[in-house]
């Protein structure tokens, strides 16, 4: 209980505190995706997958499937080749933490 209160207080004081390096890395990688998937992964059209709030494991699995060619695509098979496992992990964790 004390932990929960402390956690809540920490969140209130430091909303998205930018020096959490992992968070910033995920946020910065995810920012590029926004040109097609919307700001913070909130999709603007029904033609693309809304990434905000998707489970992290799902994003990781799909990105790797695009990258190795097991999931066919019009564009993502090319884009995904630019991202390492750890980059995919960071951006997936960041999208998973966003409000839908």
């Amino acid at each position: 209980m004390k932990f929960l209160i402390l956690a809540a207080a920490t969140l209130a004081v430091f909303p998205a505190f930018p020096s959490f390096a992992q968070d910033v890395q995920g946020r910065n990688l995810a920012a590029g995706c926004a040109i097609c998937h919307g700001t913070e992964g909130r999709a603007v059209t029904r033609d693309v997958v809304p990434l905000a709030g998707l489970p992290k494991e799902h994003i990781v699995t799909q990105m790797k499937a695009f990258r190795d060619g097991t999931r066919p695509a019009t564009v993502m098979h090319q884009i995904a080749k630019g991202y390492s496992d750890s980059q995919i992990d960071a951006l997936a964790a960041w999208f998973a933490a966003q409000k839908r």
Binding site: A34, H37, V48, T74
Partner: peptide, 20 residues
């Protein structure tokens, strides 16, 4: 035509990402 659909989606989305 699929790329045409994505082209429109890209335009509407980048307009929103930059100006929305």
């Amino acid at each position: 035509e699929a790329e045409g659909t994505y082209a429109w989606s890209w335009a509407r989305t980048i307009w929103a990402d930059s100006f929305g």
